[in-house]
Design a protein around this nucleic acid. Sequence first.
DNA 1: AATAAAATCAAACAAAGTGTTCGGTAACGA
DNA 2: TCGTTACCGAACACTTTGTTTGATTTTATT
Lengths: 177, 177
Amino acid sequence: MDRRQLKTRKAIFKAFRNLLEKKRYDRITVQEIIDEADVGRSTFYSHFETKDLLLNAMCEDMFYHIFENDPCPYVGKDHDLEGELSHTLWHIRDSKTDLSGILLSDSGELFMQYFKEHLYTMFEHHIESFKTDVPKDFLLNHLVGSFAEMVKWWLKENMKTSPEATAKYFIELTKIN
Amino acid sequence: MDRRQLKTRKAIFKAFRNLLEKKRYDRITVQEIIDEADVGRSTFYSHFETKDLLLNAMCEDMFYHIFENDPCPYVGKDHDLEGELSHTLWHIRDSKTDLSGILLSDSGELFMQYFKEHLYTMFEHHIESFKTDVPKDFLLNHLVGSFAEMVKWWLKENMKTSPEATAKYFIELTKIN
DNA sequence: AATAAAATCAAACAAAGTGTTCGGTAACGA
DNA sequence: TCGTTACCGAACACTTTGTTTGATTTTATT
């Protein structure tokens, strides 16, 4: 990939992130992004057709590393749920881009939706092992929703508790078998 | 209040609701609302300064009846949590305006935020009676988040289960003491 | 029924944002 | 070095916004 492309792409992402911490997504104009990123108007549109696609690209960028299936450097094995949750929290904490700034911003719910989509596929792999009477889709919704809320709370509290303890917390509070 | 005012206000609300079921909040223009409601441009702005304030007014209108502290016609006493949750679900089901259309729309998260605000104050009254080690604010987040997700799921499934059974479901799945 | 008050309307407006196109300039990779 | 590619800035037609104007109903009251 051309260095120039990467440079503009990063500049736009950074500008977008800066703006998102200051104001709501739907109040941010392309004009402002252009000014903040200091790129030409036509350049922006050659990279991203719309503001929505920019958001989309940025979310993929942000959440890719968090949910990638890599050998976990912190937790030995992540085949059990609790281990995988810790793993995920580790990645969130170590994420290079400031996730808390964005997830806790006025447009946080927007990113939460992307976040939840990833969580769905993650929890889906464990859903079979749970013994409960509630329907599967409800249970999934419940797990994803409460875990996402927990992450938000965790970030808001500056991640005082360790990923392991936090994951254990979550398991503890939810009757999943 | 003047009949004309009420008529315009209702027309705008209805137009807004119709549009919200078709497209996202931030893609809806004031122009479209005006056209759909068939009111003059200046009339709209004499009622609502901005689109955000219109949303705000409509949410208050929608959630007022759901969370008002009335003598419950369905559940005898609503001093216990489960009874209050049933009560809330009853109101949601009987709500005149189609809540599910809006809460499940593309802009559902927007309304969920308002919804959650009400839930917070509701759960706060019960929080003292819970015996658990997790911090109070985390527990609140957890309850509000998972209950809100449950309502969304419930609406999506066309409210097949009864309010009472659904509330019991929720209590059942959450370790709150 | 008459009247004063108030809400509505259409039209017009400047200002700001959108998305596209253009040719010129500069940076890249080979 | 040289062809390719990405960037820039300027201009464009177009839409949306929020405000103002003055004429036209509709309302509540007497």
